[in-house]
Amino acid sequence: MSGRIANTESRGVRWLLCGIAFIFLFLFLVLPLAAVFSEALAKGWGAYLEALKEPDTLKAAQLTILIAMAVLPLNIAFGVATAWAIAKFDFRGKSLLTTLIDLPFAVSPVVAGLLFILIFGAQGWFGPWLAARDIKIIFAVPGMVIATLFITVPYIARELIPLMQAQGREEEEAAVSLGASGFQMFWRVTLPNIKWGLLYGVILANARAMGEFGAVSVVSGHIRGETNTLPLHVEILYNEYNAIGAFAAASILALLALVTLVAKTFVEWRMRRETEVLLAALPPERNAGGATPRINGNQT
């Protein structure tokens, strides 16, 4: 292992650092997660299942999934298109586009929600036009989809841009020179190369979409059983002293998070393996120097 760096710290320092990291993780991640489930099950499984069967909770879960399902395809289309444009082409305004993608990271979700009220609200720019045609956007599902879309837009593009840049454009150029159409090139060359990165981005965007609170809270209108997503419902139940209900609903979100983690780990593992296979297949002169595969060989 040529890339291995020798440990210069003493054993004690290493133990101390690891210890601090583990205590921190335990206190701030594991303990709260355990608390969610222990609170949800405080009055037993019967009460827990009863709380989950509450029609408003079920509706909130349905709506959360519906919004995620509406947002993800749009995010995939937009994310792939932008990453493709940024990584493979040079054009004017490229750096502006790169900056704009990050805008949702920089804007507070609550502000994002308020912006949509300013645009689509009854007193907003398009409010009167929409009202005259009886199109409801704000305080209805479309508004919540738009708000979630805004928040989750960067995730897929941000994941794909570095990957596509690292892959370069040689393979695409080769495909085109061999007579492939644009679509064939994308479908047979680009997409297979980025599929794991894309999936990774989708998982992240999905987790964010399901957990989004701030922006959605502003545009939701809080109509029970109609425009309440799971995170909003959790807050409401908690404020109503319904601890079991609140934590039961929160446990659904926590379970979704755990599933996401497992999926993420799996995708990361696949991505790493693919890189290794790729690098091993390369001729030796291209596999020299810094191109050592990212393998964690440290077994101490």
Partner: peptide
Amino acid sequence: KQSHAGSTKQVRAVADGL
């Protein structure tokens, strides 16, 4: 159908089109 939240937030939402 019911919608509940802080009262001032609620009337603002009604004014904004809820």
